[in-house]
C-alpha cells in the first residue's frame, strides 16, 4: 500500500523514533494514522503494517482487537463519541447520548445511511470538569447540551452540502 506523501513521511519518522530493531513499536501509531487516512483497518492494512514493522499479521491482529479506537468497520465522516462515564453521567451524558441517537437515527457504534455520522458511547475522555462532553472525530466539545448538540449536527450537515 502507498499512502499520501505526508503520511509516508510521518511513517518514516515514526520508524526512526524507536531504537534499532524495535520497529514493532510503530504498530499502534501506524495503525491509528493509517486508519484516519483510509477510514478503517482493512485486512490489507494489517498486512502492510505487519510488513513495515517486521511483525506477523497475527501480531497486528492481536493489537487491532485490543484497542477500542481501532475499528474494522467504517465509521461516519463525523464520528460522534459521547462520554457517559461518571462525571458526564452526573451532568446529563446519558441524555445527550440518547438525544444524539434519536436525532441521527442510529444506535451505538452505528453509522447513518449517508455515511455522514456515526455514534459511539465512550468511556471517560478526560473532560470531566467540562461535562458532559463529546468528541467529533478528534475535536472536543464541552458542556454540551442537547441544543448545542443539535447546532453542532446542523452545522456539520451544512458544511457537508
Amino acid at each position: 500500500m502507498i499512502f499520501p506523501p505526508e503520511l509516508e513521511a510521518r511513517f518514516d519518522k515514526m520508524l526512526k523514533a524507536y531504537p534499532e530493531g524495535r520497529q514493532r513499536s510503530a504498530v499502534i501509531p501506524m495503525l491509528m494514522y493509517a486508519q484516519d487516512a483510509i477510514g478503517m483497518v482493512t485486512p490489507e492494512l494489517v498486512q502492510e503494517v505487519a510488513r513495515r514493522c517486521g511483525v506477523t499479521a497475527l501480531q497486528v491482529d492481536e493489537v487491532v482487537g485490543y484497542y477500542t479506537m481501532l475499528h474494522r468497520k467504517p465509521f461516519g465522516r463525523h464520528h460522534i463519541q459521547v462520554c457517559t462515564n461518571i462525571s458526564c453521567m452526573l451532568r446529563g451524558g446519558e441524555e445527550l447520548l440518547a438525544h444524539a441517537s434519536k436525532r441521527l437515527g442510529i444506535g451505538n457504534r452505528e453509522a447513518t445511511a449517508d455515511g455522514q455520522f456515526s455514534l459511539e458511547e465512550v468511556e471517560c475522555i478526560g473532560a470531566c470538569s467540562w461535562a458532559p462532553a463529546l468528541i467529533d472525530n478528534y475535536e472536543f466539545h464541552h458542556s454540551v447540551t442537547p441544543e448545542k448538540l443539535d447546532q453542532l449536527i446542523d452545522s456539520l450537515q451544512k458544511k457537508a452540502q
Binding site: A17, R22, R24, S25, A26, V27, I28, P29, L31, M32, Y33, C53, V55, Q59, E62, V63, Y66, Y67, T68, M69, L70, E123, C124
Partner: peptide
C-alpha cells in the same frame, strides 16, 4: 523527545501495560 499515541485503552495507563503498548503490543 517523541510522542507516541495510544489507541483506546484505560489499562494502558498502568505502567507496564503502557510499556507493552509502547512496544507495539496489546496493553
Amino acid at each position: 523527545v517523541y510522542t507516541h499515541t495510544g489507541a483506546g485503552s484505560y489499562e494502558c495507563g498502568e505502567e507496564t501495560a503502557l510499556l507493552d503498548s509502547l512496544e507495539g503490543k496489546r496493553g
